[in-house]
């Protein structure tokens, strides 16, 4: 298949950046989206142009490195799919594909389509952990955990930190990301101990960094490659209110 690509090019964080259009022929429908970009880059290099910078690593949908805003959707048109899992057969022959970086004030562009997502780390540093030193743990089976809750905690912990929720949200809100982590720990007895402190600290950090608020538009849920439900956000709000109003 032959395609046209409209790609955001930006030399570095300081420069302005603009779209460039490229034609790419003989694209195989079996190719992954990133492999198609590999192909494009080889073509660009052979023409003496600068290849497009992108973040990518595992290429099997679990590391969360990749993330492109493709034709108006983070990670492209397919549901529950990361950019690296997306195949070219999802596009029609001859189509124009617009590729943009995830946009948010908290995700500044470093180069081309490669962004800085360290804001996510900062939120987690504020409290996204259980304070248990190596060596302090009791025997693993000493605290039984309700299977349903444990499974739910897993669903929340499935977040890969790719940032699609922020990218999809009209307000560039990180609520789903933060909620997933808060929920994971709030559901487990091990995490309950510091639940109130955790939610207060993480939400405060999220606000301080400048992420938008939640309009309950649910674009995050629609584009989360791991299908994390917005019910997490409701539960976080509950945890937050509890921490602010009830907890000491």
């Amino acid at each position: 298949m032959n395609i046209k690509l409209k790609i955001w090019r930006q030399k570095n964080a300081q420069s302005k950046g603009k779209f460039e259009t490229y034609s790419l022929n003989d694209v195989s429908p079996e190719m992954g989206f990133l492999e198609m970009l590999d192909y494009l880059n080889q073509e660009l290099i052979s023409k003496g142009e600068d290849p497009v910078a992108i973040d990518h690593d595992c290429r099997e949908g679990i590391c969360g490195s990749c993330g492109l805003y493709i034709n108006g959707q983070p990670h492209g048109p397919e549901p529950k799919t990361t950019t690296c899992e997306l195949r070219m057969r999802s596009f029609k022959d001859g189509s124009l594909i617009t590729v943009e970086p995830f946009r948010s004030r908290m995700f500044p562009v470093i180069k081309d389509l490669l962004i800085d997502r360290s804001a996510f780390d900062k939120i987690l540093i504020a409290g996204g952990f259980i304070s248990s030193n190596t060596g302090t743990a009791p025997e693993a089976n000493s605290i039984p955990v309700c299977k349903k809750k444990s499974d739910k905690a897993f669903d929340m912990a499935a977040c890969i930190g790719c940032g699609a929720c922020v990218a999809a949200c009209k307000n560039a809100s990180a609520m789903l990301f933060v909620a997933a982590k808060i929920n994971q720990y709030a559901l487990l007895p091990q995490g309950k101990v510091e639940a109130a402190e955790r939610v207060k600290k993480m939400v405060a950090k999220m606000d301080e960094l400048g992420f938008g608020s939640c309009s309950n538009t649910y674009a995050c849920e629609a584009k989360c490659p791991k299908g994390i439900s917005v019910s997490a956000i409701a539960k976080m709000n509950r945890e937050f209110l509890h921490a602010k109003i009830v907890a000491e």
């Binding site: 952990f129 248990s132 060596g135 693993a140 089976n141 039984p144 299977k147 444990s150 897993f154 912990a157």
Partner: peptide, 23 residues
């Protein structure tokens, strides 16, 4: 290896459990 599992549980790693709540 056993200490490793204990520690992961303490860190909130949601390993699969059975209906009794045990690993």
């Amino acid at each position: 290896s056993n200490d490793v599992i204990d520690h992961y549980i303490a860190l909130g790693v949601p390993f699969a459990r059975d209906y009794g709540g045990y690993l």
